[in-house]
Design a protein around this nucleic acid. Sequence first.
DNA 1: CTGAAAGCGCTTACAG
DNA 2: CTGAAAGCGCTTACAG
Lengths: 318, 318
Amino acid sequence: MSTVSRVINGRADVAVRPETRQRILTAARELQYRPNAIARGLRLATTGTLALLVPSLRNPVNSAIVRGAFDRAWERTFVLVLAEDSGESDAAEEAYERLVEEGRIDGLLIQSARLGNTHLDAFAQGPVPCVFIDRAHPGSGRNVTMRDADAGRTAAEHVLALGHRSIGHLAGPPELDTVSRRRVGFVERVEAVGCTPALVSAPLSESGGYAAMQELLAACAPTAVYVANINQAVGAVAAVRDAGVRVPDELSLLCHDDDPVCEYLDVPLTAIRMPLHELGSTAVDVLLEQVEGGPARDVEVRTAPELVRRGSTGPAPR
Amino acid sequence: MSTVSRVINGRADVAVRPETRQRILTAARELQYRPNAIARGLRLATTGTLALLVPSLRNPVNSAIVRGAFDRAWERTFVLVLAEDSGESDAAEEAYERLVEEGRIDGLLIQSARLGNTHLDAFAQGPVPCVFIDRAHPGSGRNVTMRDADAGRTAAEHVLALGHRSIGHLAGPPELDTVSRRRVGFVERVEAVGCTPALVSAPLSESGGYAAMQELLAACAPTAVYVANINQAVGAVAAVRDAGVRVPDELSLLCHDDDPVCEYLDVPLTAIRMPLHELGSTAVDVLLEQVEGGPARDVEVRTAPELVRRGSTGPAPR
DNA sequence: CTGAAAGCGCTTACAG
DNA sequence: CTGAAAGCGCTTACAG
């Protein structure tokens, strides 16, 4: 039995007679033997399972990130379980209890961090390695993020280069670290040329984008607006259309996140494409470093945000 | 130790002195004791885990179904692991080996059935209960589906009632059971009034919808088109716009699947809303019946497809 | 080079 | 009413 175990697990440290090895391998094939993962897990104190805590299963914007994480985890022979941190009272805690405290997982990817959330430190210090993905938990030393501030800067540079000086930003909720970093980068560049951008915050939804764009148009009639999120952008485009404002002649529109939808809206949307899949796979790699005993660390995915130019941005009207 | 186990698991069959029970409960709370799920799983030959095999993590159209499944599984104290059946060579088999044959799961939800797929029977007869969700595997006796044919009928009745007689259907790939049933229901009703609908099949993507709609317009200049899927619809709307055809004056457009996007397109899209969340939760319930020892069965979610009328459908032009 | 033994953390008949 | 024992299917020192 022990020889079988050694052969099946390919352990080179103990010599096995070639003939014995063959007999074992043949028998295993015939019997379709596969070691039981649960028994193995109990013995090895390892489950081969990672969990991903998502803010909401409702919003599929994150699906490219999820896919990146899944693909890499699968490659590295880990299985991924899904958990939801809806933001309600104790959703996150309950997930934590059932996954970490019951010993079901080897590592935890948290995609649902909200600035000011009090549970987060407890998770970071828990018995199971964890990593904050996309939305950082500042100071935790275990954040895997993208260059969101650079995305904001790229957006600003694009509209500034087109001559715009009356500029707005349709931002996301302030408790979300990602959209906040976009805002900071954008505002920094716009202010660098002596302008003050108009800012409106809204939920990351179509209806949020619609209402906030109406507000922005009424408040300051900008000639260029950077929208923090693709869902908002769909609503913003509709608001602009309903207001009778022409894109890009009267208003340039630019959105964060690229998506197939961008190409098919009434005016194809210029967008900032982020390395979402890479973020997911990197986060798994960083988490597994910890699982294998390494120290936690912050990692920023190096791939730069990419401006995908389409028809919705053009020269500033004079 | 055994008394502790009995108290923690709330087994009423063995009497425990109230004082002992209290001592146990108090100690458990103080120590933050939680039974280890892996050890429990080994002993009980039960994992508390279900797997969901999705066709592609790329397409998030299914996210409402996934959410429904997740929510119900979680409620019933099961955890959900994700697996991908990309349709490539042995993706599904590999997932099956790692999840079922290694004993990681108690039940399997298969959302990736394709008509004619040869692995499916093996899965259905495997050692672990399974259920086909949304896309049926005909004859398996374990399908949990929605009323897709009725959705097609509802769509047909709507455009017929508006007086349309020159009617098209932008269908999905024939190997997908769901879109096929939509097509059958739609065609049946249209033919019942003596018309022959024009049919074009396309992948369930924006670009697929765009190209197929162009084809449909060129082939027969229909006055009403039922689009089989929301992603296709986004492309179809763009194709109609690019062709200079006015909606709904010259062409009524109606799509399967409701989505926030429908409200914000240049013409708000009339859509058929399906009980996606309910499908997910029902599938979990049906699967757990089997896990608990019951027989497999086909279930169709009773909730009827609902026509959500918006601006994209109107009376037939004369 | 290979087999027998212990033990991972539980649950459940079975004694007492 | 409660405790001691066996066993779920593995892996890994340890004998031989």
